[in-house]
Design a protein around this nucleic acid. Structure first.
Lengths: 269, 269
DNA sequence: CGGCGTATTGACGCACCTCAAGGTAAGTGG
DNA sequence: CCACTTACCTTGAGGTGCGTCAATACGCCG
């Protein structure tokens, strides 16, 4: 369920700036947001579970949400991980079928806007910008998913992990020279469709590819080696090249301690 | 490239009735279709290849199109198979990025409407029904894709095939008591992310699950056994139950030759 | 300290991939 | 009509990456 919080300026300010609302006027955004409420979901609580009626679109303001599905034979598969700025339920809202096919679980303390699905559908039906944003968002994630399917079919686990870590670094704006995993390893392994043991065993292998993982700390040591395993799609290559360039420039400037500087610059691209 | 054909009534009539255009007025449909042309693509020709600029939305009128991607290490992965009534390129049209990430190849002789992407985007921007249809279509296929990822992660190949055959039977409206595979086995195997040998070896195993495959002929013998391996999502269960019910009713009516009647009732759900 | 959640490491089996050798069927040319 | 080719599929043998089970180690907190 989650407990309703009083909506404050921080929440509103955050939700106004999510990608899904880009291009909408503040009035349009507020007209949507004011119909919703902000809710808190303590760790391990569910926003909704598989089989629930689809009633809301969620905008995650803080915390991490795990989307998972229980298979008929009782196993749990993590389909995605959503964090602040992401939406939950946008895909299902427009699929046929009126019930959730996944469960959404708060991995840590989560705060999220809960917007009535009917209202969102109505606004999308009349507002070109929102409907275009929804289209772009869903199409983008579907495309990303196709790439992942390709990865799992053709790559070995260490390569899949390599690609995921790069994508994580890019999308979260972490410093490739050193950052901390934002989730537990077991969650990431599940997200990648592999067992924790497989994940754990694959990490040492990554060192050969220029990715050093010690505990929850990740560092990209050698961008050239990393590139070997990336797909041409996730635009991670460009990112790595850009960062390599930065590093080379820094070296040229005699800034030798650069690579050891583990400051986690949160710089969205 | 494909060679341009003169548009005839059959083409128009077909394209007017695709799911993507449901709810549009005939005038709206024709306004879109008249901006496009109908093209023929001989077997093995490409509609477009990976890296091409995204210029068009394709509506397949006849034939079969394989969507595939070549991985950096030179392998080919089939991401989807589209046939008459399906669209090609609708997802990429709304993703970020202006280039195709897959190649579209005519598996047999293909005829397709080619609609200017810019025009479709424009109409989607002003027409609520079309944009809603696009949303539904993309969201639906994305959801389906998630289920497939789950399948590949948790099921063994024979179960994946079982589920695919059922889905195929449902979506194409084949008679579950007996139908012919619409594609070559190698194509299906590739679509399912497995090797042809694995596919081939898995077919005999399916007999234990009530699915008899002889050559290109498929027959669902025992719906109860089949149900064991289905996911709760693809709504195949309902379909099978419905058909089982039909069969039982026929039996009750003394219609003994029913199961041997291989008429391929094309009944879209 | 002991208990708990999390991660690592080892041993083992199996499902799938890979390479390779038929085998069937349809089309081609003599 | 029969050899020959080509495309497609099947079947066999062997290797391996990953799942599984199990034991151990690590960090955290009461």
């Amino acid at each position: 369920m989650g407990s309703r919080l009083s909506m404050n300026g921080a929440h509103l300010g955050f939700a106004r700036n999510i990608p899904l609302f880009r291009g909408l006027t503040d009035a349009e955004k507020d007209s949507l947001l004011k119909d919703g409420g902000i809710y808190a979901y303590p760790r391990r609580n569910t926003l909704f579970i598989q089989g629930d009626a689809i009633s809301s679109l969620y905008v995650v303001c803080a915390g991490t949400v795990q989307l998972s599905r229980s298979t008929p034979d009782g196993r749990e598969v993590t389909t995605d991980i959503r964090s602040a700025g992401d939406t939950v339920g946008e895909k299902e809202m427009f699929s046929s079928g009126s019930r959730h096919q996944v469960s959404a679980i708060a991995v840590d303390h989560v705060e999220a806007f809960k917007l009535p699905a009917e209202r969102v559908r109505a606004v999308a039906g009349s507002n070109v910008v929102l409907s275009r944003n929804l289209l772009a968002s869903i199409a983008q994630s579907a495309t990303q998913r196709e790439v992942e399917m390709e990865h799992r079919a053709t790559m070995k686990s260490s390569q899949v992990i390599s690609c995921y870590l790069q994508h994580l670094c890019v999308s979260r704006g972490f410093d490739p020279r050193g950052f901390t995993l934002p989730y537990k390893k077991s969650l990431i392994a599940s997200r990648l469709g592999m067992e924790l043991e497989t994940f754990s065993r694959a990490l040492p292998v990554l060192k050969e590819n220029g990715i050093a993982v010690e505990g929850a700390h990740v560092a990209f040591r050698d961008f050239d080696a990393v590139d070997d395993h990336t797909c041409g799609l996730c635009s991670v290559n460009d990112f790595c090249r850009a960062h390599r360039k930065i590093r080379e420039e820094r070296k040229a400037e005699g800034d030798e301690h650069g690579p050891e500087n583990h400051s986690c610059a949160v710089q969205r691209i």
